[in-house]
Write a protein that binds this DNA or RNA. Sequence first.
DNA 1: GAGACGTGGAT
DNA 2: TATCCAAGTCT
Length: 371
Amino acid sequence: MSRTAGSQAPTGWGLPIAFASLLIEWQRHSGRSGLPWQLTREPYRVWLSEVMLQQTQVSTVLSYYPRFLARFPDVRTLAAASPDDVMALWSGLGYYSRARNLHRCAQVVVNEHGGAFPTTAAQLETLPGIGASTAAAIAAFCHGERISILDGNVRRVLSRLLAFEGDLAQAGPQRELWRLAQALLPVAPERDDMTAYTQGLMDLGATVCLRSKPLCGRCPVRAECRAHAANETQRFPVKTRRLQRRFENWWLLLVRHVGGDGQVRFWLARRPDSGIWAGLYCPPVFADDKALQAAVHSTLGGALHALAPVAHSLTHRELRLHPLLLDVPSVATEDGLPPGQWVSVQALADHGLPAPVRQMLSGLDQPGSTA
DNA sequence: GAGACGTGGAT
DNA sequence: TATCCAAGTCT
């Protein structure tokens, strides 16, 4: 192991032993504080924040978190809710399987754990939607368990600190880095130490150890950082996998009805239980223009009005959405339409809609509007 | 184990 | 514009 043979900062085990105490002290005077989910140790609130924050930036979650809590203030309320209600509050946050698992998890906690979350990371990880990192975060924040998270921040911070050469696109090196993360934990920490340490890992990654142009001058552990010593911070973390997007065209049939009282309604269908936007409400989707027209009764087809295409990119897909607007004179028209249901403009807020669909429909919510 | 799964922000 | 990525998990 050449990594332990160098003269820079390694201890007997090749790890910077001052790391944990430096990080804890730094977090307490320079870390983030006052975020809504930092004001509590209540497992329900911590759990909700951790799930919302999976692959999602703090700035995005800030608006969703209080709204969700106001509607579902505790785990029993959430467990008793309908899947549609949960999805409506998650609408726009993305990764909707999180919402489904969140709901299932609440039901498991209520039905199998008497309404109280398990207290150890090992038990938490058995619950739906709670993986190793989220389980560790909840256990560390709420109960001071001596266990490490491993999110994107930690991968970046630790891979630089240790000049970790393993390819984090692969499972083996990931596990190895997690073992190292465990080895770096404070020795015999108090509960509050684990809170500060765990928060400190994330704060350091989010505010100092930035992806490009890290602010090493402000880093509390730069003296122990091997990447910094070698002037190679930009080389870590090592990750080879490149995400590739597939291009796809989707044709959306936007059927609109304006009632005699001016009430505007759209014809929406629930997406299948798997795949993109699973469980959300969406206008009927077709693979091409012809398939869309074939699904509309011939007496209605002439009224189709093509709107401007919308580009929408997902992690693995580059969608080009082609909306076609069909104004129908009567709700009785549904016989000539693909499966779906009428949803009034007012009721859209109570439905889980994909972000681009909500955007699209919001421009059509006035009688006659086409933008 | 590799790919599926959203959205918005940063570069 | 293209690419990466952000408090990952599930299959």
